[in-house]
Computed example of a mutant assay.
Amino acid sequence: MNSSKVLKATLAPLSLAMLAAAPSAMAETEFKFGGYVKADFMVSNYDNGAPDDSNLSRQFYVPGTIYGDPNRANTVTDFQARETRFNFTSTSDMDGHTLKFFVELDFFTTSDGNERVSNSYAPRLRHATVTFDNWTAGQTWSTFQNPGALPEALDFVGAAEGTPFVRQGLIKYSNNGFSVAIENPKSTFTSTAGGRIESDSSYIPDLVARYDFKGGDASFSIAGLLRSLDIDETIGDTTYDESEMGYGLSFAGVVPVFNRDVLKFMLNYGDGTGRYIALNYANAAVLRDGGGADTISSISGFVSYQHWWSDKWRSNFTVSGFEADNPGILDGTTANETSYSGNVNLMFSPVKPLTVGVEWLYALNERANGDDGELNRFMLSFKYAI
Protein backbone atom coordinates (compact mmCIF):
# COMPACT_ATOMS: atom_id res chain seq x y z
CA MET A 1 0.00 0.00 0.00
CA ASN A 2 2.87 2.36 0.84
CA SER A 3 6.40 2.58 -0.51
CA SER A 4 8.93 1.70 2.17
CA LYS A 5 12.57 2.17 2.93
CA VAL A 6 14.06 -1.25 3.50
CA LEU A 7 17.03 -1.96 5.72
CA LYS A 8 18.53 -5.42 5.65
CA ALA A 9 20.59 -6.82 8.50
CA THR A 10 21.76 -10.20 9.78
CA LEU A 11 21.51 -11.47 13.32
CA ALA A 12 25.03 -12.91 13.25
CA PRO A 13 26.59 -10.07 15.27
CA LEU A 14 24.22 -10.63 18.19
CA SER A 15 25.59 -11.59 21.59
CA LEU A 16 27.21 -14.97 22.18
CA ALA A 17 24.54 -15.72 24.75
CA MET A 18 21.78 -15.45 22.15
CA LEU A 19 23.78 -17.48 19.68
CA ALA A 20 24.20 -20.19 22.27
CA ALA A 21 20.50 -20.18 23.14
CA ALA A 22 19.28 -20.54 19.56
CA PRO A 23 22.16 -21.18 17.16
CA SER A 24 19.94 -22.66 14.45
CA ALA A 25 17.50 -19.74 14.47
CA MET A 26 19.94 -17.14 13.20
CA ALA A 27 18.93 -15.92 9.77
CA GLU A 28 18.62 -12.85 7.63
CA THR A 29 16.01 -10.40 8.88
CA GLU A 30 14.41 -7.67 6.82
CA PHE A 31 13.18 -4.47 8.46
CA LYS A 32 10.70 -2.11 6.80
CA PHE A 33 9.61 1.33 7.91
CA GLY A 34 6.48 2.67 6.22
CA GLY A 35 3.48 4.91 6.49
CA TYR A 36 2.61 8.36 5.24
CA VAL A 37 2.06 11.99 6.17
CA LYS A 38 -1.39 13.30 5.23
CA ALA A 39 -2.77 16.82 5.61
CA ASP A 40 -6.54 17.30 5.29
CA PHE A 41 -8.44 20.57 4.84
CA MET A 42 -12.19 20.10 5.27
CA VAL A 43 -15.22 22.33 4.96
CA SER A 44 -18.30 20.54 6.33
CA ASN A 45 -21.96 21.53 6.29
CA TYR A 46 -24.27 19.75 8.74
CA ASP A 47 -27.92 20.55 8.04
CA ASN A 48 -28.85 20.29 11.76
CA GLY A 49 -25.85 22.23 13.06
CA ALA A 50 -22.28 21.03 13.38
CA PRO A 51 -21.08 18.96 16.35
CA ASP A 52 -18.22 20.40 18.42
CA ASP A 53 -14.64 19.98 17.23
CA SER A 54 -13.95 17.02 19.57
CA ASN A 55 -16.67 14.97 17.87
CA LEU A 56 -15.48 12.00 15.80
CA SER A 57 -17.51 13.26 12.84
CA ARG A 58 -15.18 16.23 12.54
CA GLN A 59 -12.25 13.85 11.85
CA PHE A 60 -13.87 11.58 9.25
CA TYR A 61 -17.32 10.42 8.24
CA VAL A 62 -18.87 7.97 10.70
CA PRO A 63 -22.52 7.00 10.12
CA GLY A 64 -24.66 8.00 13.08
CA THR A 65 -22.56 11.01 14.09
CA ILE A 66 -23.93 13.64 11.71
CA TYR A 67 -27.30 14.44 13.30
CA GLY A 68 -25.67 17.63 14.57
CA ASP A 69 -26.31 20.24 17.26
CA PRO A 70 -29.03 22.81 16.42
CA ASN A 71 -27.41 25.30 18.78
CA ARG A 72 -24.31 25.51 16.63
CA ALA A 73 -23.47 26.88 13.18
CA ASN A 74 -24.05 24.59 10.21
CA THR A 75 -20.72 25.08 8.41
CA VAL A 76 -17.29 24.46 9.95
CA THR A 77 -13.72 24.26 8.70
CA ASP A 78 -11.12 21.82 10.04
CA PHE A 79 -7.42 21.47 9.25
CA GLN A 80 -5.81 18.25 10.48
CA ALA A 81 -2.93 15.85 9.99
CA ARG A 82 -4.33 13.11 12.21
CA GLU A 83 -4.49 10.39 9.55
CA THR A 84 -0.68 10.45 9.39
CA ARG A 85 0.60 6.97 10.24
CA PHE A 86 3.83 5.08 10.81
CA ASN A 87 4.49 1.36 10.75
CA PHE A 88 7.34 -1.05 11.31
CA THR A 89 7.73 -4.59 9.99
CA SER A 90 10.31 -7.21 10.85
CA THR A 91 10.41 -10.42 8.78
CA SER A 92 12.78 -13.29 9.54
CA ASP A 93 13.48 -16.63 7.88
CA MET A 94 14.20 -18.97 10.79
CA ASP A 95 15.10 -22.54 9.80
CA GLY A 96 12.58 -22.42 6.97
CA HIS A 97 9.88 -20.78 9.08
CA THR A 98 8.72 -17.21 8.51
CA LEU A 99 8.43 -15.05 11.61
CA LYS A 100 6.91 -11.60 11.16
CA PHE A 101 6.21 -8.69 13.48
CA PHE A 102 4.09 -5.67 12.49
CA VAL A 103 2.99 -2.57 14.40
CA GLU A 104 1.27 0.59 13.14
CA LEU A 105 0.17 3.85 14.78
CA ASP A 106 -1.85 6.89 13.77
CA PHE A 107 -3.51 9.81 15.60
CA PHE A 108 -7.24 9.43 14.97
CA THR A 109 -10.12 9.19 17.50
CA THR A 110 -8.13 10.48 20.51
CA SER A 111 -9.66 13.41 22.39
CA ASP A 112 -6.63 14.59 24.38
CA GLY A 113 -5.76 17.47 22.02
CA ASN A 114 -7.50 20.64 20.89
CA GLU A 115 -7.54 23.10 18.00
CA ARG A 116 -6.83 26.17 20.15
CA VAL A 117 -3.03 26.12 20.34
CA SER A 118 -1.01 22.98 19.68
CA ASN A 119 -3.29 20.37 18.02
CA SER A 120 -1.35 17.73 19.97
CA TYR A 121 -2.88 14.27 19.72
CA ALA A 122 -1.66 11.02 21.22
CA PRO A 123 -0.76 8.09 18.95
CA ARG A 124 -3.23 5.20 18.90
CA LEU A 125 -2.55 1.56 18.16
CA ARG A 126 -3.93 0.41 14.80
CA HIS A 127 -2.19 -2.92 14.29
CA ALA A 128 0.13 -5.09 16.38
CA THR A 129 0.60 -8.66 15.18
CA VAL A 130 3.00 -11.58 15.31
CA THR A 131 2.83 -14.06 12.43
CA PHE A 132 4.52 -17.46 12.42
CA ASP A 133 4.08 -19.23 9.08
CA ASN A 134 0.29 -19.52 8.66
CA TRP A 135 -0.64 -18.31 12.15
CA THR A 136 -1.33 -14.70 13.15
CA ALA A 137 -2.06 -13.39 16.64
CA GLY A 138 -2.60 -9.83 17.82
CA GLN A 139 -4.73 -6.87 16.78
CA THR A 140 -5.49 -6.26 13.13
CA TRP A 141 -8.33 -6.18 10.59
CA SER A 142 -11.14 -8.62 11.30
CA THR A 143 -11.07 -11.65 9.03
CA PHE A 144 -14.66 -10.69 8.10
CA GLN A 145 -13.30 -7.59 6.35
CA ASN A 146 -11.52 -7.39 2.99
CA PRO A 147 -9.39 -4.20 3.19
CA GLY A 148 -8.17 -4.67 -0.38
CA ALA A 149 -11.68 -4.05 -1.70
CA LEU A 150 -12.06 -0.62 -0.09
CA PRO A 151 -12.32 2.29 -2.54
CA GLU A 152 -9.63 4.95 -2.79
CA ALA A 153 -10.92 8.05 -1.02
CA LEU A 154 -9.66 11.10 0.83
CA ASP A 155 -12.11 10.34 3.63
CA PHE A 156 -10.61 7.82 6.04
CA VAL A 157 -13.04 4.97 5.23
CA GLY A 158 -14.61 6.07 1.95
CA ALA A 159 -17.64 3.74 1.93
CA ALA A 160 -18.48 3.62 5.61
CA GLU A 161 -22.02 2.20 5.36
CA GLY A 162 -21.20 -0.57 2.94
CA THR A 163 -18.26 -2.36 4.49
CA PRO A 164 -17.23 -4.35 7.52
CA PHE A 165 -14.69 -2.16 9.30
CA VAL A 166 -13.26 -3.64 12.49
CA ARG A 167 -9.79 -3.93 13.97
CA GLN A 168 -9.56 -6.20 17.01
CA GLY A 169 -7.68 -8.97 18.76
CA LEU A 170 -7.72 -12.35 17.04
CA ILE A 171 -5.98 -15.66 16.44
CA LYS A 172 -6.05 -16.62 12.76
CA TYR A 173 -4.89 -19.47 10.55
CA SER A 174 -4.48 -18.83 6.79
CA ASN A 175 -3.61 -21.21 3.96
CA ASN A 176 -4.18 -21.14 0.18
CA GLY A 177 -6.65 -18.26 0.31
CA PHE A 178 -8.65 -19.68 3.20
CA SER A 179 -8.60 -18.03 6.62
CA VAL A 180 -10.37 -18.97 9.84
CA ALA A 181 -10.15 -17.04 13.09
CA ILE A 182 -11.48 -16.64 16.58
CA GLU A 183 -11.91 -12.96 17.37
CA ASN A 184 -12.73 -10.65 20.25
CA PRO A 185 -16.40 -10.90 21.32
CA LYS A 186 -18.19 -7.66 22.09
CA SER A 187 -21.96 -7.31 21.94
CA THR A 188 -23.88 -4.06 21.56
CA PHE A 189 -27.62 -3.87 22.16
CA THR A 190 -30.28 -1.24 21.57
CA SER A 191 -32.65 -0.23 24.37
CA THR A 192 -36.35 0.24 23.61
CA ALA A 193 -35.67 4.00 23.73
CA GLY A 194 -33.14 3.64 20.92
CA GLY A 195 -29.93 4.10 22.94
CA ARG A 196 -26.89 1.83 22.86
CA ILE A 197 -26.07 -0.65 25.62
CA GLU A 198 -22.64 -2.29 25.60
CA SER A 199 -22.48 -5.72 27.19
CA ASP A 200 -19.51 -6.73 29.34
CA SER A 201 -20.73 -10.33 29.47
CA SER A 202 -19.53 -11.70 26.12
CA TYR A 203 -17.26 -14.70 26.63
CA ILE A 204 -17.56 -16.92 23.52
CA PRO A 205 -15.14 -15.74 20.79
CA ASP A 206 -16.60 -14.73 17.45
CA LEU A 207 -15.89 -17.27 14.72
CA VAL A 208 -14.96 -15.88 11.29
CA ALA A 209 -13.94 -17.54 8.03
CA ARG A 210 -13.00 -16.04 4.67
CA TYR A 211 -11.99 -17.40 1.28
CA ASP A 212 -10.05 -15.24 -1.19
CA PHE A 213 -9.99 -16.39 -4.79
CA LYS A 214 -9.33 -15.13 -8.31
CA GLY A 215 -11.21 -15.27 -11.60
CA GLY A 216 -8.83 -14.18 -14.34
CA ASP A 217 -7.41 -10.79 -13.35
CA ALA A 218 -10.25 -10.17 -10.88
CA SER A 219 -10.09 -11.01 -7.19
CA PHE A 220 -12.97 -11.90 -4.89
CA SER A 221 -13.67 -12.84 -1.31
CA ILE A 222 -16.53 -14.42 0.58
CA ALA A 223 -16.65 -14.26 4.36
CA GLY A 224 -18.89 -15.66 7.07
CA LEU A 225 -19.36 -14.64 10.69
CA LEU A 226 -20.93 -16.53 13.59
CA ARG A 227 -21.25 -14.89 17.01
CA SER A 228 -22.94 -15.27 20.36
CA LEU A 229 -24.71 -12.13 21.62
CA ASP A 230 -24.54 -12.37 25.41
CA ILE A 231 -25.66 -10.10 28.22
CA ASP A 232 -25.93 -10.98 31.91
CA GLU A 233 -26.53 -7.67 33.64
CA THR A 234 -29.12 -5.67 35.54
CA ILE A 235 -30.17 -2.50 33.76
CA GLY A 236 -32.56 -0.32 35.71
CA ASP A 237 -35.13 -2.65 37.26
CA THR A 238 -34.67 -5.42 34.70
CA THR A 239 -32.19 -8.26 34.92
CA TYR A 240 -31.11 -9.58 31.52
CA ASP A 241 -29.62 -13.03 31.05
CA GLU A 242 -29.81 -13.35 27.28
CA SER A 243 -27.88 -15.25 24.64
CA GLU A 244 -28.78 -14.93 20.96
CA MET A 245 -26.94 -16.14 17.88
CA GLY A 246 -25.85 -13.66 15.25
CA TYR A 247 -24.40 -14.25 11.80
CA GLY A 248 -23.17 -12.35 8.77
CA LEU A 249 -22.11 -12.89 5.17
CA SER A 250 -19.95 -10.64 3.00
CA PHE A 251 -19.01 -10.85 -0.67
CA ALA A 252 -16.46 -8.47 -2.20
CA GLY A 253 -14.71 -8.06 -5.51
CA VAL A 254 -12.01 -6.07 -7.31
CA VAL A 255 -12.48 -6.27 -11.08
CA PRO A 256 -10.16 -4.66 -13.67
CA VAL A 257 -12.30 -3.15 -16.43
CA PHE A 258 -10.08 -1.71 -19.18
CA ASN A 259 -6.71 0.02 -19.24
CA ARG A 260 -6.13 0.82 -15.54
CA ASP A 261 -9.78 1.29 -14.56
CA VAL A 262 -11.07 -0.83 -11.68
CA LEU A 263 -14.52 -1.70 -10.33
CA LYS A 264 -14.80 -2.49 -6.61
CA PHE A 265 -17.90 -3.70 -4.82
CA MET A 266 -19.15 -5.29 -1.63
CA LEU A 267 -22.45 -6.78 -0.46
CA ASN A 268 -23.21 -7.71 3.15
CA TYR A 269 -26.15 -9.33 4.89
CA GLY A 270 -26.54 -10.40 8.48
CA ASP A 271 -28.78 -10.89 11.48
CA GLY A 272 -27.11 -9.72 14.67
CA THR A 273 -24.03 -8.58 12.76
CA GLY A 274 -24.09 -5.31 14.70
CA ARG A 275 -20.74 -3.58 15.19
CA TYR A 276 -19.05 -5.42 12.33
CA ILE A 277 -20.83 -3.33 9.67
CA ALA A 278 -20.89 0.44 9.10
CA LEU A 279 -18.82 1.25 12.22
CA ASN A 280 -21.60 -0.03 14.52
CA TYR A 281 -24.27 2.20 12.96
CA ALA A 282 -26.85 -0.38 14.13
CA ASN A 283 -26.51 -2.70 17.10
CA ALA A 284 -26.80 -6.49 17.09
CA ALA A 285 -30.10 -6.83 18.97
CA VAL A 286 -32.74 -4.89 20.91
CA LEU A 287 -33.45 -5.62 24.59
CA ARG A 288 -37.13 -5.78 25.47
CA ASP A 289 -38.23 -3.93 28.60
CA GLY A 290 -39.49 -7.00 30.42
CA GLY A 291 -36.55 -9.17 29.40
CA GLY A 292 -35.59 -10.97 26.22
CA ALA A 293 -33.85 -9.81 23.05
CA ASP A 294 -34.60 -9.62 19.33
CA THR A 295 -31.78 -9.60 16.77
CA ILE A 296 -31.52 -6.80 14.20
CA SER A 297 -30.95 -7.78 10.57
CA SER A 298 -29.33 -5.52 7.99
CA ILE A 299 -28.24 -5.33 4.37
CA SER A 300 -25.46 -3.07 3.12
CA GLY A 301 -22.93 -2.60 0.39
CA PHE A 302 -21.08 -0.26 -1.94
CA VAL A 303 -19.97 0.13 -5.54
CA SER A 304 -16.89 2.14 -6.52
CA TYR A 305 -15.39 2.84 -9.93
CA GLN A 306 -11.85 4.14 -10.39
CA HIS A 307 -11.05 5.85 -13.70
CA TRP A 308 -7.56 6.89 -14.78
CA TRP A 309 -7.60 10.05 -16.87
CA SER A 310 -3.85 9.73 -17.47
CA ASP A 311 -0.80 8.21 -15.79
CA LYS A 312 -0.93 10.92 -13.10
CA TRP A 313 -4.63 11.78 -12.82
CA ARG A 314 -7.44 9.54 -11.56
CA SER A 315 -10.95 9.75 -10.07
CA ASN A 316 -13.06 7.50 -7.87
CA PHE A 317 -16.86 7.43 -7.88
CA THR A 318 -18.43 5.65 -4.89
CA VAL A 319 -21.95 5.04 -3.56
CA SER A 320 -22.60 3.24 -0.29
CA GLY A 321 -25.70 2.23 1.66
CA PHE A 322 -26.98 0.48 4.80
CA GLU A 323 -30.48 -0.46 5.90
CA ALA A 324 -31.45 -2.06 9.20
CA ASP A 325 -34.67 -4.03 9.65
CA ASN A 326 -35.38 -2.86 13.19
CA PRO A 327 -37.96 -4.77 15.26
CA GLY A 328 -41.28 -2.97 15.59
CA ILE A 329 -40.67 -2.02 19.21
CA LEU A 330 -38.10 0.51 17.95
CA ASP A 331 -40.63 2.41 15.83
CA GLY A 332 -40.60 6.08 16.80
CA THR A 333 -37.28 5.85 18.67
CA THR A 334 -33.83 7.34 17.99
CA ALA A 335 -32.45 3.98 16.80
CA ASN A 336 -30.44 4.28 13.60
CA GLU A 337 -32.16 2.77 10.59
CA THR A 338 -30.81 3.79 7.17
CA SER A 339 -27.64 5.47 5.98
CA TYR A 340 -26.43 6.44 2.51
CA SER A 341 -23.40 8.28 1.18
CA GLY A 342 -21.65 9.08 -2.06
CA ASN A 343 -18.33 10.66 -2.89
CA VAL A 344 -16.35 11.67 -5.94
CA ASN A 345 -12.74 12.76 -6.05
CA LEU A 346 -9.95 13.86 -8.34
CA MET A 347 -6.40 12.81 -7.46
CA PHE A 348 -3.08 13.90 -8.92
CA SER A 349 0.26 12.15 -8.33
CA PRO A 350 3.03 14.19 -10.00
CA VAL A 351 5.57 11.76 -8.52
CA LYS A 352 4.83 8.35 -7.02
CA PRO A 353 5.13 9.21 -3.30
CA LEU A 354 2.99 12.37 -3.51
CA THR A 355 -0.78 12.61 -4.03
CA VAL A 356 -2.86 15.78 -4.04
CA GLY A 357 -6.63 15.38 -4.15
CA VAL A 358 -10.01 17.04 -3.83
CA GLU A 359 -13.20 15.24 -2.83
CA TRP A 360 -16.87 15.96 -2.27
CA LEU A 361 -18.84 13.70 0.09
CA TYR A 362 -22.57 13.65 0.75
CA ALA A 363 -24.21 11.55 3.48
CA LEU A 364 -27.76 11.07 4.76
CA ASN A 365 -28.58 9.25 8.04
CA GLU A 366 -32.13 8.43 9.18
CA ARG A 367 -33.52 7.26 12.52
CA ALA A 368 -36.56 5.11 13.23
CA ASN A 369 -38.51 8.17 14.40
CA GLY A 370 -38.01 9.94 11.06
CA ASP A 371 -35.28 12.33 12.22
CA ASP A 372 -32.42 12.66 9.79
CA GLY A 373 -29.07 14.31 9.38
CA GLU A 374 -27.24 15.43 6.24
CA LEU A 375 -23.57 16.12 5.69
CA ASN A 376 -21.91 17.83 2.73
CA ARG A 377 -18.12 17.88 2.95
CA PHE A 378 -15.43 19.26 0.66
CA MET A 379 -11.88 17.99 1.24
CA LEU A 380 -8.46 18.97 -0.03
CA SER A 381 -5.65 16.59 0.92
CA PHE A 382 -1.90 16.30 0.53
CA LYS A 383 -0.31 12.89 1.12
CA TYR A 384 3.33 11.83 1.06
CA ALA A 385 3.96 8.09 1.37
CA ILE A 386 7.21 7.01 2.98
Rank of each mutant, 00 (worst) to 15 (best):
E83I: 02
R85F: 05
F107H: 08
S92L: 13
R85T: 02
T75P: 00
S111P: 02
T75D: 03
M94D: 04
E83P: 07
D106K: 09
T98A: 13
G113Q: 08
F88I: 08
H97N: 14
Q80I: 01
F108P: 03
D106W: 04
S111W: 07
G64P: 08
G113L: 09
M94N: 15
F107S: 04
V62G: 06
S111E: 12
Q80A: 10
K100W: 05
I66V: 14
S90C: 07
R72M: 04
S111C: 05
R85G: 03
R72I: 01
R82Y: 01
M94W: 12
T91A: 10
F107G: 08
V62P: 03
N74A: 12
D112H: 08
T75K: 00
L105E: 01
T110G: 14
I66K: 01
F88Y: 11
G96M: 06
V62W: 04
N71K: 05
T89A: 11
S111L: 14
T65R: 09
F86I: 12
F107D: 03
V62R: 05
R85H: 00
T75W: 03
I66W: 05
T89F: 11
R85A: 01
A73N: 07
F86P: 03
D106Q: 03
F86H: 02
L99G: 06
D93C: 07
L105I: 08
D93F: 06
V103C: 09
T91R: 09
Y61Q: 09
Y67A: 03
V62F: 06
G113D: 08
Y61F: 15
M94F: 09
V103K: 12
Y61N: 09
S90Y: 06
T65S: 15
T75C: 07
G64C: 08
V103G: 12
T110R: 13
G113I: 14
T75R: 00
G113A: 09
Q80S: 13
I66T: 10
T89W: 14
S92T: 14
S92M: 13
N71E: 15
D78S: 08
F86Q: 00
E104Y: 10
F108A: 10
Y61R: 07
V62E: 04
N87G: 13
V103H: 02
A81C: 00
D106S: 13
H97P: 07
E83Y: 03
V76L: 02
T91L: 09
E104N: 07
V62C: 05
S92Y: 01
D69I: 06
G68S: 06
